[in-house]
Structure formats: structure tokens, C-alpha cells
Design a protein around this nucleic acid. Structure first.
Lengths: 147, 147
DNA sequence: CACCTCGGTCCTTTCACGAGACCGATCCGA
DNA sequence: TCGGATCGGTCTCGTGAAAGGACCGAGGTG
């Protein structure tokens, strides 16, 4: 996604996008959230070019979003697992999926859902005010530069 | 961000990324959430190339995320405003910003914050189960293919 | 009448993506 | 023992998108 970088953007969104904003990266994360781990699994589930997959996985590992762990010797084979930092992207990924569900709906309904393990209820992403504790809707939020 | 498209991806995340996943697009949305509206304001606040900005804004308008409205005649000048669909991206944008705050922190702290208008408390993105009503953490969420 | 503003378009260069060939270590079956 | 399969990659090449900057058109301003 990035040519040089979003240099000069004093913004954590820009810094975030440098790590996970390139083409394919969020789809790789989602694929990992669905349970995929191995190079070939990503390759097949996403139909991404090999060299690009290599590049993305390497970058994600460098930034601590995934880790590359051997799952067998002779021959050594590696798989990629989300780190806590990677799993911490769940909110963002689900938020994007649900935006698509609401704003770009397929006639046949969404193909994937985020479920609460155990309870099996559907999980929704929402915003909540840490001050008053209430749920907050889009129009009640202001993004402010604080520095 | 997209070469051909993420064709064949039966996933609303892929369809979402086709609209808002290209380089710069989410930064434009964030810039709009901060209050910017005019071509030159985006140009200056983001230091993006003019032709790319034109392309992105056009695409966002085509997909109903922003609208292009004249704000004066003689000469006619246009500005770009988020539609409800665009404002509906607030959750996702804030989720990404906060992931950056937690996982790629700057020593001096985050430069922007999402505030609850009026109350002025900080807004947090969280996940909640529509079944049991409880807040849900990353490890308790499973993304499932349901079709 | 020259110059500024704003919202663009056009041109060229550079670079990342996509596709596919190839590779190296090991296992497996005949 | 040899051919093929498996897996996780690397290398090369062509093409399209982004970066950067020149230019533009309609009108306002000094």
C-alpha cells in the first residue's frame, strides 16, 4: 500500500496503516482469525501471489503481529500465528466487516459472522464513553487532534 | 490498493477493502472526521498527490461514502462531506487508531483522541455479545464462515 | 490587467503487484 | 533407487498505480 511511507503523518492511524494497511494484509489477518496458519493455507484461501504473501507475512512478523514458529523438523516447516497484538486487531477487522454488511450488503447475506464462543451470540462492535459509560453513536463522536 | 480486485473473495471484508482499503483512503476519512471538507484541505493535511486525491474522492463518492456538494456559485466550488455511510466508518477508524495507540505507541502519546461530544469522555471501541449482552474480549470471539 | 484561489487534469518516472517458473529439503510408494 | 509429492519459499518479468510537478479554467481581487 505504501510507497515511501506516510511520513510526517503524526498520527497513529497512519502508523497503523503502514503495518496493516497494505493490500491483502487485513485479509491475511482475517484468514488467520478463521484459523488458518500455514503458508499454503493462506495461499489457497486468499488466492494471493506467493511473493506478495511472503512479503506480507514477513512484515507482520517484523512488527510483532504474527509469529513464525516451526511445527515440524525434517524438513523444518513453519506456520504463522497471530500474536496478542495480532488478535487485538479483531475489533478493527470485525468493525470493517460489519461496515460492509451494513453498507455493501450481498443479497444472500453476509458470508461470515463473529460469534461469542460458548454463548454463540453474534458479536457487535460498538463505541462506549469511558466517562459516562454509555454507548456512543457516530454523530456523538468527535475525533480531535490533542497535540 | 487493489490491482484487479479481490475477485472471488466471498467476503464482505474484501468488498469493504475494495472501497476503503486503498492507500490513503482511510486517512482521507479520518481527515473528514476531523472536520476537513475541501479538496485543498485534504491536500494540505495529508500531503497526498493531487491526482491520487481526485481518484480517491471520486471513488468514495461513487460508493456513497462521501458526497460532493457545491458550497458556492461563481465560480462553482465543491466540497466533500461524509454521508451517513461514511460516518458509519467511525467505529472502524477509531478501532484502528486505538490498535496503533496500544501496539505502536509513540513515546509522547497519541496525537488524536475520539471524544464523546458534550460529556468529553474518551470513546473506546469494544465488542459486545448481542446474545448475553456482555462485553467480549478478543479470545472469546470466533470469526466463522456461515455459508 | 496582472495575479490569486480552488478544484481539478495531464505527463513522466518509479515502484509494487500479479503470474508463473523454479528450488531445496524431505518423505513416500513402487 | 527413482519419480513424484509436499511445503515454504525465491527469482524474473511485464504492467498498472502512485508520486511529483506542470498546467488549466472560471472567476475574484488589487
Amino acid at each position: 500500500m505504501l510507497r515511501h511511507t506516510y511520513e510526517g503523518q503524526d498520527c497513529n492511524l497512519a502508523r497503523t496503516l503502514e503495518v496493516i494497511g497494505e493490500r491483502w494484509t487485513l485479509l491475511i489477518i482475517r484468514s488467520a482469525l478463521l484459523g488458518n496458519k500455514r503458508f499454503d493455507e493462506f495461499l489457497e484461501s486468499l488466492e494471493i501471489a506467493r511473493n506478495v504473501l511472503t512479503k506480507r507475512l514477513t512484515r507482520l512478523v517484523e512488527h510483532g503481529v504474527m509469529e513464525r514458529v516451526p511445527y515440524q523438523d525434517r524438513p523444518v516447516r513453519y506456520e504463522y500465528r497471530l500474536t496478542p497484538s495480532g488478535r487485538d486487531l479483531t475489533r478493527a477487522v470485525v468493525a470493517l466487516m460489519q461496515w460492509g454488511d451494513r453498507n455493501l450488503p450481498l443479497e444472500i447475506g453476509p458470508p461470515r459472522r463473529a460469534d461469542h464462543i460458548g454463548c454463540d451470540g453474534a458479536v457487535q462492535v460498538e463505541m462506549r464513553c469511558t466517562g459516562c459509560g454509555r454507548e456512543v453513536h457516530d454523530e456523538e463522536v468527535e475525533v480531535r487532534r490533542i497535540r
